[in-house]
Design a protein around this nucleic acid. Sequence first.
DNA 1: GTCTATAAGAGGATAGAC
DNA 2: GTCTATCCTCTTATAGAC
Lengths: 198, 198
Amino acid sequence: MINLKNSTDDKIRYIAFRLFLEKGYEATNIRNICKEVGIKPSSLYFYYRSKQELFFSLYDEIWDEKIQYLENIQALKQNLSPDTKLYILFKKTIEYCSRNIIKQKFLLRYHLFPSEELMNMIRDKFRFWTNTENNIALNIMEECLDKKILDSHRSADDYLREYVKFVNAHMIEMIISNIKMSDTEIHNLWLKFWNYVF
Amino acid sequence: MINLKNSTDDKIRYIAFRLFLEKGYEATNIRNICKEVGIKPSSLYFYYRSKQELFFSLYDEIWDEKIQYLENIQALKQNLSPDTKLYILFKKTIEYCSRNIIKQKFLLRYHLFPSEELMNMIRDKFRFWTNTENNIALNIMEECLDKKILDSHRSADDYLREYVKFVNAHMIEMIISNIKMSDTEIHNLWLKFWNYVF
DNA sequence: GTCTATAAGAGGATAGAC
DNA sequence: GTCTATCCTCTTATAGAC
């Protein structure tokens, strides 16, 4: 989507993403996209079988890119204490969202207000992708419990829920206010969370 | 909109509100609304000159209802200290949102993702209504400064911004998680805010 | 790969009868 | 107030030429 090859397909994806984000799925039409790309509507059907296919190709790519990033954080593969790992994951997640606010806004839009036509598929895909993302944190939670860093009177799932709620609150704040967080802000937030909630 | 007279107009408004909230402006069509109401599309044009007019009639009503409620809080007209008044305003605001989550979700939808066709009008209307709402808190802030309850090294506008940010954060959390707040939760939040931010 | 032409339908809105 | 009938425009999508 931020590909610089500038092929017709790249242009379609770039423009379609912007319009789907700003105008929404229903109000975005093939003609608008094609006019901006500089092709005729029929040409788009060479690349995608339908408007839906184009939409979900973008939707899945945005999620996949985020998951790829989080699953490939090198620091998490080293031999660090699980509480340090959790902080790194939090920091990297917030940083990723800061750098990709419009992509997160896209996901928020279709999570909060899915078009009726897309509703069922989005619900399933959302479940799948959030599960995949949450598993990264869940593994670290379990390691924390194993090593007695977190009190075992609560389950890993329980801790995960608190963590997810915390991360989401700050992501949504960034999306709505369109303000990024500094390193020290991220650090202070984490300290409060770790000491107060856990 | 929650009128029980059950006239044709009430039905139109009730159903249109639900569809505008769930499906969005573009995806909601006159035919859908009329089918649920049980009238023919042409009959709707007896009540509203256009789809836009119907939409803004609902939009303004929701804002007006909220403002009316906040401007008529009897406790704020009594002789109380301004810091107590501010707490009452906060509490009543959160309570109102708890009781009217779907209306707040409607406002959030069209604030975050306005349809292109409505964008300019919504922007103007949003400014007007938020200004009206903020003035209620601003007056109390000024009273706090007059009576030296708040430190005058910051302006009333400055305090207002912090207050609005605080209220909005919790409103959005309620909308997204669809969870209401208990009296003690509201009270504890306020104490933290008053002591920590102000 | 990209085009022209067009099908097939859904949308907002209006005229005028009752 | 509500209806039937209809206008005109916009929409997704396809067929087939180049």
